[in-house]
Structure formats: C-alpha cells, structure tokens
C-alpha cells in the first residue's frame, strides 16, 4: 500500500470530452454464448492462479505426500513389495488425491461469493451458471496438473502401466471428467454454508468415508460383509476400478460406463441445487 502517496492518476481531472467520447453509445456487442461466458470465467480462474500461484502448492504437494506415504508405509506390509503394490495403488492414489482437491472449489466459491465483484457478475445479463462453470474449468486445470505430478512420481518409483500412454491418458481423462461432475457438490456447499471453515469441515466428512471406504488401498474381499456393501455402492470404487482397468490395459467398459452415468447424475442433481442456491443468494 506504499503506492498511495505517489499514485499515478492522483492528479487526474475527469475530462468531459474524454469521458463523453468513451461513453458515446457505439454498437453494443451481442450477449456472449453460454460457452463463451463460461470460458471467460475459466480464464479468470487461470489469472487467479497466475497472480496467486500458492494455489498450485496444495494441488501438487498433497498428492506427492500421499503417493510417497502410502507406497512406503503400506507397500511392504500389504503387498510384500513396494513396486508390486504401486501397480495396484497408483491409480487409486491418483483418484483419491484428485477427488480430495475438488473440495477447494467449494472453498473458492465460498470466499468469492461474499465479495463485491460477485454482485457485478450476478447483475450481468449472461448465462446464469457461467461463473460456477468457470470455477470448475479453472479447477480442471489444477486436476490435470496434480494428475501429471502423481504420474511422474509414480513412474519414478517404478509404476509401469500396462495400458501404455493411451491407457494412462484415457484414465486421467475419465478421472477429470468425474471430478468436473463431482465439483458441483462443492459449489453447492460453497453457496450453502456460511464460512470457509464449515465448507472444509463438511468436505472432510464427505471425502474421508468416500475415499477410504473404497477399493483404493486394499481389495474389498478382505473386508467384513457390511463394509463390502458400502464399498460396492461407493462411486469412488467404480471410478478406481475403471481408471485401474484403463491404465492397466484391461479396459472394463462396464465400469467406465457406470462412471460416466454417475457423473451425469451428479451434474444434474448438484448442478440444479447449486443454481437454485445461486439464484436465491
């Protein structure tokens, strides 16, 4: 704030001609399409990453720690050898990390919505969901960065996917598509809850059971029956199976379809709830 004493423009005197000239009603451009408005908000999210690059720290440090921790902590105990366990674990760790960082969407929405700039967005004549879609588009960039970071760490540690480049990319694409859909849960909570803290709290409450009570870390066969029932209906389980199959080169079309269907359901249900809250806010 030291700039306030030597402001350029402090001596500014509003000039009638200059201001009248910029206000002269030229041809008004046509209202942007839904896609164009959403992409513009996505661009805003990218600019925010550029200006506040610390945001990327969360999405890179956390996955690296997760991967190292689970590989070395449990690898030996669970599979006898860390390299062997890694082939099973890495797709699951990638899914867990990305699904976990989707919650930052909710935090971002919650902190942004209270600011004056949101009033301006909401007073514009644009496709209503565009600001929300924009957040998620920006976050998809973060999901991509995080996925690639985990992949590189995995490759260094000895991950050798049977599906090759195509399989791995298909797996990441499916994961990001699901995360796009899942993020609508967080836009809803971001609008619904009062503070950033409560968004974080609810996120943990939802994410821990979803990611740990799944087939990420161990084969569900080893679990008690009642737990297997939950694991079986948990969408994360199916996402992990689908991604594992794509990366491993043994594509399970059934699981992939199931993931795409659950993504569509998530968008419809939570997208609708989000927009209802957004319009009422």
């Amino acid at each position: 704030m030291s700039a306030t004493t030597t402001e350029p423009g402090t001596a500014y005197v509003p000039a009638a001609e200059a201001l009248s000239a910029v206000m002269a009603p030229g041809a008004r451009p046509r209202r942007p399409s839904a896609l164009s408005a959403s992409i513009t908000f996505g661009w805003r999210a990218m600019l925010k990453i550029k200006h506040v690059p610390e945001q990327l720290f969360d999405v890179t440090a956390f996955p690296i720690i997760m991967t190292l921790m689970f590989t070395y902590l449990f690898g030996g105990a669970l599979a006898g050898s860390t390299t062997e366990y890694l082939q099973y674990l890495l797709p699951g760790i990638m899914v867990t990390s990305i699904v976990m960082i989707t919650m930052y969407t909710g935090v971002a929405v919650n902190t942004d919505i209270e600011k004056g700039v949101f009033d301006r967005f909401r007073s514009l004549s644009i496709w209503r969901p565009a600001p929300m879609v924009g957040y998620i588009l920006g976050d998809m960039f973060r999901y991509t960065v995080a996925s690639l970071v985990i992949l590189v760490v995995g490759l260094v540690l000895g991950f050798r996917p049977g599906g090759g480049v195509t399989g791995v990319l298909a797996g990441i694409a499916l994961l990001i598509a699901f995360s796009f859909a899942f993020s609508w849960v967080w836009t809803m909570f971001g609008l619904l809850l009062r503070s950033e803290k409560s968004v974080m709290g609810v996120s943990m409450l939802v994410l821990f059971p979803l990611t740990f009570l799944s087939n990420v870390f161990v084969d569900p066969e080893t679990m008690p029956g009642w737990l297997q029932v939950f694991v079986e209906v948990n969408p994360i389980t199916h996402l992990v199976s689908a991604v594992r199959s794509l990366m491993g080169g043994t594509t399970d079309t059934g699981e992939v379809t199931l993931v795409l269907i659950s993504s569509a359901v998530l968008v419809v249900v939570f997208g609708t709830l989000t927009m209802r809250l957004y319009n009422r806010k």
């Binding site: 805003r44 600019l47 925010k48 200006h51 506040v52 600011k115 004056g116 700039v117 009033d119 301006r120 007073s123």
Partner: peptide, 14 residues
Amino acid sequence: VSLTGQFASVDEDM
C-alpha cells in the same frame, strides 16, 4: 443497468 456496489465490485487479485 450497471452496479457499482458499496464494497468495490472489482477483483482485487487481478
């Protein structure tokens, strides 16, 4: 209409 809100309707980070 356009709105200039009581609390700056511009993005501080940009």
